[in-house]
Structures are given as structure tokens and as C-alpha cells.
């Protein structure tokens, strides 16, 4: 199964990229999850509220429909440590809005147009994430 993972990764990635392309060519907007949700949360995206809500709803519902029809249950394998999860969420929410982008906005949409900001941001968050995982492994002897 592990050998097939990269193929599914590539297929899934191509589909994600097509979604981002539709959002750009159709609406003229960057498909960044943190930007779309953040704009709803802090009110900066008020003028585009409805289309943002449709995007978020589709993003939530699509995997649920896939799971329903494929009959393959899914799991996030998220850690059971609630405090860790809460802190992580806080860091992700604040960090992506302060840095103005996440994996989809800076990563996919930024790198594909060779945006220096997207490339630098992506290198930094991957490095910070790697340091965190190394630290977690060292402290807890696993995740």
C-alpha cells in the first residue's frame, strides 16, 4: 500500500491544482484555505462572503460524499492530546493570517507563479514544522 501512496498523492494533488485553477480563472481569486476562511472570520472578506461560504461548504461536503459512496471510512489519526490539538489550532489560525497564507495559498498558488513571498513562506513553515516534529519525537518518543 505504501508504494501506491505517492500515486494517490499525485492524483489528489492534480485535482487540488485543478480546483485552484478554477478559482483563479473563474473568480480571479487565490484559492487559499486560510485566506478564504479568515476573511469570513475577521470580516475583511465581507464583500465576497457568499462565494467564500459556498467554497467552504463544498470543501467540507465533498469528502463526506466520497466516503459515503465509497464505503471507505476515513480517519485523521489526530493525536488524542486535546491540549496539543488546541495549541496547534491556535498557532495555525494566527500564523496563517499573520503570514497571509498557508499550504494552499503560499504553497500551491504562490510557488506556481514563482512568487518570492510564497516560496520563502513555504520554506519557513516546512522548516518550522520539521523542527516541531523532531522535537515531538525527542520528547515523546513518538507521536
Amino acid at each position: 500500500m505504501i508504494e501506491l501512496d505517492w500515486i494517490w498523492g499525485l492524483i489528489g494533488g492534480l485535482i487540488i491544482g485543478c480546483g485552484a485553477a478554477v478559482y483563479l480563472l473563474g473568480n480571479g481569486r487565490i484559492m487559499g484555505a486560510s485566506g478564504i476562511l479568515g476573511g469570513l472570520v475577521d470580516g475583511t472578506g465581507r464583500n465576497l462572503r457568499v462565494e467564500r461560504m459556498f467554497f467552504v461548504a463544498a470543501l467540507v461536503i465533498a469528502p463526506a460524499i466520497l466516503i459515503f459512496f465509497s464505503g471507505r471510512p476515513a480517519d485523521t489519526n489526530l493525536t488524542g492530546n486535546v491540549l496539543l490539538v488546541a495549541i496547534a489550532g491556535l498557532l495555525v489560525g494566527a500564523g496563517t493570517r499573520i503570514g497571509n497564507g498557508c499550504t494552499s495559498g503560499h504553497g500551491v498558488c504562490g510557488i506556481s507563479r514563482l512568487s518570492p513571498r510564497g516560496i520563502v513562506s513555504t520554506l519557513i513553515y516546512i522548516f518550522a514544522g520539521a523542527m516541531m516534529v523532531v522535537g515531538l519525537r525527542a520528547i515523546m518518543g513518538g507521536l
Binding site: 484555505a33 486560510s34 476562511l37 485523521t76 489519526n77 489526530l78 493525536t79 496539543l84 490539538v85 495549541i87 496547534a88 489550532g89 491556535l90 498557532l91 495555525v92 489560525g93 494566527a94 500564523g95 496563517t96 493570517r97 499573520i98 503570514g99 497571509n100 498557508c102 499550504t103 494552499s104 503560499h106 520563502v120 513562506s121 513555504t122 519557513i124 513553515y125 516546512i126 522548516f127 518550522a128 514544522g129 520539521a130 523542527m131 516541531m132 516534529v133 515531538l136
Partner: peptide, 16 residues
């Protein structure tokens, strides 16, 4: 922002 985001991302394995 990228540092904070990366830390949270590594901590739980989820991004937005």
C-alpha cells in the same frame, strides 16, 4: 506568521 503556522502544522499535522 510562517514560523507560527509551521509550528502548529508540525504539532498536529493539520493545516487549514
Amino acid at each position: 506568521g510562517a514560523i507560527l503556522f509551521g509550528m502548529g502544522w508540525g504539532l498536529a499535522g493539520l493545516c487549514p
